[in-house]
């Protein structure tokens, strides 16, 4: 028992260390190379051009990467738990589809040009919120919590939203299509510091709140019926967790676009490395998602510099390959152990 807590602590420290490492890497790499030794002097000297790059461009991206990567990965871990389905990710329930449709609608109508910077995230979040309410209402209808039905409804809403979006893209100008596509592919380039702050605080409070449900989530691993026999009110727990995960995802999508794969791959990786106890899985997924997104952002910024790749491209390719490698290694290890 003691060993378990010790290994969780060590794992958390390791992940924190990795995050600091990734952050330092992200701070020092880019078009204007700033050496590791120069970081502190540049940080203190407000006059330099590099100071501006560091504090206004690179640091906000790191913060946003932690918040978005952490939230998505945390939501993935939670949703995989309540749906008892390893293939569920934050976007499965149509939240990204709704957000994308909302944003596409605003871009096509040109409203974002007249209203201002908050318009796109706001419309993305509204789209996501509508989907959350729809899935929630339909899924929880008549007092049930049929999670499979909810999943199917989410997937169907996803299809409807993406078809509607394609319709919009078919009738609009190529300039608008470009805008929509780039938004969908996701980016950590967010100039508004207030939005970054909101995302970070929501992410952190989401992580804290999720810990109220760490043990119920462990029990739900055994199914709703068994959880009820262990004194867990499965319905309420599932509803609250669904709401929490969806809101986190909705905010992430609204701010950073559709960054795929983080919410699917990172919880699995953490599970393979450290077991499926939610008391560690929640914080592990959060930190893992943050690290993964910071590193992906570094790659996205440097690969075809001075241009930037959409970060969703990197997370998809890197995440998929990484996952297959780890899964294979783990299989082999287990086979040897038996």
């Amino acid at each position: 028992m003691k060993n378990k807590y010790l290994s969780w602590t060590l794992f958390t420290l390791l992940l924190l260390l990795l995050f600091v490492g990734a952050a330092l890497l992200s701070l020092t790499t880019g078009e204007a190379a700033i050496g590791l030794g120069d970081l502190l002097p540049v940080w203190r000297d407000g006059e330099q051009m590099e100071h501006f790059i560091l504090t206004r461009i690179r640091l906000p991206r790191i913060v946003l990467a932690l918040a978005v990567g952490g939230s998505l990965s945390l939501s993935g871990a939670i949703l995989q738990g309540i749906f008892r389905n390893p293939l569920v990710e934050p976007y499965t329930l149509g939240i990204s589809g709704g957000a994308a449709l909302g944003v596409a609608l605003i871009i096509v109508t040109g409203l974002h040009l007249s209203v201002g910077a908050f318009m796109l995230p706001l419309s993305g979040f509204s789209g996501a919120a509508i989907v959350i309410v729809l899935v929630g209402l339909l899924g929880f209808l008549r007092g049930g919590t049929d999670v499979n039905k909810m999943l199917l409804i989410g997937v169907m809403i996803s299809f409807v939203a993406s078809s509607a979006m394609m319709f919009l893209m078919a009738v609009t100008t190529s300039e608008n299509i470009h805008g929509i596509v780039f938004w969908i592919m996701g980016s950590l380039d967010e100039p508004n510091p207030l939005l970054i702050k909101i995302t970070l605080y929501t992410a952190l409070s989401g992580l804290l709140l999720s810990y109220l449900f760490a043990r119920p989530l462990n029990a739900l691993l055994l199914g709703q019926e068994k959880a009820a026999y262990l004194g867990i009110n499965s319905k309420t727990t599932i509803r609250l967790l669904f709401l929490l995960a969806s809101l986190l995802t909705g905010i992430c999508v609204a701010v950073a676009g559709v960054i795929g794969f983080v919410g699917l791959v990172i919880p699995h990786l953490i599970r393979l490395l450290a077991g499926s106890d939610y008391r560690f899985l929640l914080v592990g997924s959060f930190l893992g998602g943050g690290i993964f997104l910071v590193l992906s952002d570094v790659v996205a910024r440097t690969l075809i510099a001075p241009n930037e790749l959409p970060i969703g491209v990197i997370t998809g390719i890197a995440g998929g390959i990484l996952f297959i490698i780890v899964l294979n290694k783990n299989r082999n290890r287990r086979r040897h152990a038996q």
């Binding site: 028992m1 807590y5 810990y211 109220l212 449900f213 760490a214 043990r215 119920p216 462990n218 029990a219 691993l221 055994l222 199914g223 068994k226 262990l230 004194g231 867990i232 599970r271 077991g275 499926s276 106890d277 008391r279």
Partner: peptide
């Protein structure tokens, strides 16, 4: 339901009705 959970942790879940949800350690 054969979850990916160690037998010891599984048996310990039997104490869940006696724990507050935010009680972290057994």
């Amino acid at each position: 339901d054969a979850a990916e959970i160690s037998v010891e942790d599984y048996v310990l879940l039997g104490r869940l009705p006696y724990r507050a949800p935010f009680q972290f350690f057994e």
